[in-house]
Nucleic acid binder design. Sequence first.
DNA 1: TCGTAGTTTTACGTTGACGTTAACGGAAGC
DNA 2: GCTTCCGTTAACGTCAACGTAAAACTACGA
Lengths: 135, 135
Amino acid sequence: MAGTKTLRKEEYSISELAAEFSITPRAIRYYEEVNLLTPHRNSKTTQRMYTRRDRARLKLILRGKRFGFPLVEIKEMIDLYDVDPTEKEQLRQTVAYGDRRLGEIDEMIRELQEIREEIFEFRNRFLEVLEGEEA
Amino acid sequence: MAGTKTLRKEEYSISELAAEFSITPRAIRYYEEVNLLTPHRNSKTTQRMYTRRDRARLKLILRGKRFGFPLVEIKEMIDLYDVDPTEKEQLRQTVAYGDRRLGEIDEMIRELQEIREEIFEFRNRFLEVLEGEEA
DNA sequence: TCGTAGTTTTACGTTGACGTTAACGGAAGC
DNA sequence: GCTTCCGTTAACGTCAACGTAAAACTACGA
Ligand SMILES: [Zn+2]
Ligand SMILES: [Zn+2]
Ligand SMILES: [Zn+2]
Ligand SMILES: [Zn+2]
């Protein structure tokens, strides 16, 4: 057929995505349940089909999950990508939301660095004891 | 009584700790249930009493919680403070555990900084749109 | 001595993020 | 035509980390 270059995949089934990201189809359906994903249906088969945009959102979801953001907050953050840039009030709120988020994230980074340093000092103290005995 | 200087408190009741850290007694009892705290009992009253060491552990627990470490992992990390420095094998394992932890934490920091930057760029892009319209 | 306040144990309830099972439908291969 | 392999919905189960409520005990001050 003309114009059907499929160098990169255009659409994915649920199990393809599940396999690619090492999660279960159930999880993906759940993300749809809470409006984090909105696949369309292949009208013939009634099966969910995921576009590359859906796939990109899924990546963002999983990244947010990696360190404990709840799904509702992940949704807030992801929805930043879909703000209508002609709505001034929406823009203002989005900027304000971004500022709050940035503050929270900076605080997380600070605390993580504190923990990092403590663990690092402990590790080194123990290591010195070990090296002292081996000398 | 002789030798009973109590400049700094030596022991705390459960509600004192709860008030100090803005959590509930129930939460503190739960930490005991999962072996994160081991208060002793004032044998007269059967009430839990917390030493300054217990209080220090509680601080560590709450810090670990602030960004989503599960209690079991918090326990692993806190127990680093109680390693017997004469047991070489235990020391070696502790150092190895610390290394793994450090790797995980570094990865978390990296990803947080990525997220930070993305949000920051989005925020700025919106801000420029707003400022452009106001000019 | 009574009331009030703080504590105890036991036990059941709750929320988020899925896991698991059941019961069913369409397509593909033989 | 039957099996096998996706997929579907609906519904109940689970796990962590407590919340909440009940019933009983102890301490302490007026
Ligand atoms: Zn399609
Ligand atoms: Zn928030
Ligand atoms: Zn004591
Ligand atoms: Zn780990």
